[in-house]
Write a protein that binds this DNA or RNA. Structure first.
Lengths: 350, 350
DNA sequence: GTGAAAGCGCTAACAA
DNA sequence: TTGTTAGCGCTTTCAC
């Protein structure tokens, strides 16, 4: 933005001049401090109203050495419901602390850094970051000066800070074991292209679950799906394999929806089992209803916010960074209970 | 938040002291201004790095009389996808202008005011507001001082400002006419409880469409659904009527999903026609796929942002507030084409 | 090349 | 009850 002149906003000076009082008295009135006669006080308030005065909290904070009573949240734009719930959790806690939550969403990996630094330069009191870039060493200055920071969904690289994670590996393990328990041996995995932490962990769980039960077939792993459309395409390709999977594990809800779309188009919704990671609004309304691994996203938000405020209010900086891992849960709805051959529930010859 | 001491962050003063230089020279170096010997400049940079210095943009802005290069967005927490798309549109434009977008979400109607004023006190350069409260006269000061403000989805009350709206009435009209064209005469409406502008407009379209074609039956109108669960319940009640509707119009996507849930539970998904206002991710995956009225939400975001920046860069303040209305569109998918009696496509005796 | 002084809008501390 | 002084962190103007 071309640095422009900010539109003239009235200051206490303006009010003082107009009322014929010192700026300090105006300050007193406008802050509800005592020591100004009611007559003049009323006059000040009237003029303030008339002029459209709004106290400049930035200048105030500068003088008072108080924080901005604001915490910044940086997340990547994504079509995942994840962020709604996360923000809801953060807001709830911030509200209790009387702080404002300002969220910056970044279009892609590249802008994470600039958004975070902009927030830091604007002196937010704390930061909650869902990292999308692979390196956060640009935050070393903030680390050094003790800026309260919490990372969510994936740990920071290059600095150490508080972290809140879902138990992704366990979730991946549970999803896979569940499919195995229903008789599957060839389980496809479809995940997003950017090699993020969470999907990787989920895949780790998948691999662990397979060990000793079923062979790991790299051909069944498609970790390069670009968005919903990419997931759909990846699914199509898996289904076209000479020896296709009998079950699928989708690594996030965007992928899950893409997979559902592919299965429906192929008329295989009731033939191929599916478990998705992360719940979504209409999962129970689809046919079959989609079994998912849920993570406690709102709780992740609450936890992260609590940590930030603990640090802000002087949690011994000495106490090292913490890592909180929240559990995941399997929700059985139908799609994950299809057995090889398309049978649901109990087995009988297809 | 209890106004606490902000953690000590190094200032230019600190660097100057340590290097043995004046604060002004430090400022020069850190801003890339010329006139400092390279040797000392390098020293300054080294110390800055070591100390974890980050320029205080608030103080800088105070001195420079420049804006904060930030625009504030205030929206209400809601499970509607609406906001994702809106922010995406705003971000896109803001990015082009090199501005940061900071979003404050408010839990409910009550906090709109405080969030907006906090942003204003923090000197954002402009505001985009999706109003949830019914009165914005608290923004008169901002109006008076020419703070660039744009309202989205619903006009401001109590002040006049730029506005971006969807053509809700036309959408409601189109949805209803579509159902009428498919033979329906008893069309139920299910909408959210808070008497917001957009749902009301949609109902207006509904009423208009009915005129001269079908009688308006107040018993078929349920404009009091609290969330998804409320919509589901309202739907159940409509279906239990002695003379139930043969078609339904859901006023937003939260309601739509609630209605789908009710219809599925009642086993009537393929008997009762349904058109929803506002699209959602899995609308085409449900059975039957849900016909909807779409609004160009991302475009609304882009438009609002363009307006804000136009005002910021001095669009003649004299030029009165504008109002932009974006079209809606009917997407035919199946649920809206069911005819009375449960027939799809063409008619034949039930 | 470098620095001293003044001031952005605001407020504590201390007069008057 | 009211005003003056000083200064938050920064940058401009104008000296040296």
């Amino acid at each position: 933005m071309d640095s422009h002149q900010v539109p003239a906003r009235p200051t206490m000076r303006d009010i003082a001049d107009q009322v014929g009082l010192s700026i300090k008295s105006v300050s007193r009135v406008l802050n509800g401090d005592p020591g100004v006669s009611e007559a003049r006080a009323e006059e000040v308030r009237a003029v303030a109203r008339e002029l459209g005065f709004r106290r400049n909290d930035l200048a105030r904070g500068l003088r008072l050495h108080v924080g901005t009573e604001t915490i910044g949240v940086v997340i990547r734009q994504a079509s995942t419901r994840f962020y709604d719930s996360l923000i809801r959790g953060i807001d709830e806690v911030a509200d209790r602390h009387g702080a404002l939550v300002l969220t910056a969403t970044t279009p892609g990996v590249e802008r994470e850094r600039s958004a975070v630094l902009a927030l830091s330069s604007r002196r937010v009191d704390g930061l909650i970051i869902v990292p999308s870039s692979s390196d956060q060493s640009y935050l070393r200055a903030e680390e050094a000066t003790g800026m309260p920071m919490v990372f969510v969904d994936r740990p920071a690289k290059g600095i150490s800070a508080d972290t809140v994670l879902a138990d992704n590996a366990s979730g991946g393990y549970a999803a896979t074991k569940h499919l195995i328990a229903h008789g599957h041996r060839r389980i496809g995995v479809i995940g997003p292209d950017h090699s993020a932490f969470a999907p990787k962990e989920r895949v780790r769980g998948y691999r662990d679950a397979l060990k000793g039960t079923a062979p790991l077939d790299e051909n069944l792993m498609r970790l390069d799906a670009k968005g919903q459309a990419g997931a759909r395409q990846a699914c199509d390709q898996l289904l076209a394999l000479p020896d296709p999977p009998t079950a699928l594990f989708a690594l996030n809800n965007v992928c899950t929806i893409g997979v559902v779309r592919a299965l429906q188009a192929a008329g295989l919704s009731h033939q191929i089992a599916l478990v998705g990671f992360d719940d979504f609004d209409t999962a129970d309304l689809l046919s079959p209803p989609v079994s998912v691994i849920t993570q406690e996203v709102e709780e992740m938000g609450r936890t992260a916010a609590e940590m930030v405020f603990a640090r802000i209010s002087g949690e011994p900086a000495a106490s090292g960074p913490t890592r909180t891992i929240l559990p995941t849960q399997l929700i059985i709805r139908g799609s994950g209970e299809i057995e090889p051959g398309g049978v649901t529930g109990r087995r009988h010859s297809a």
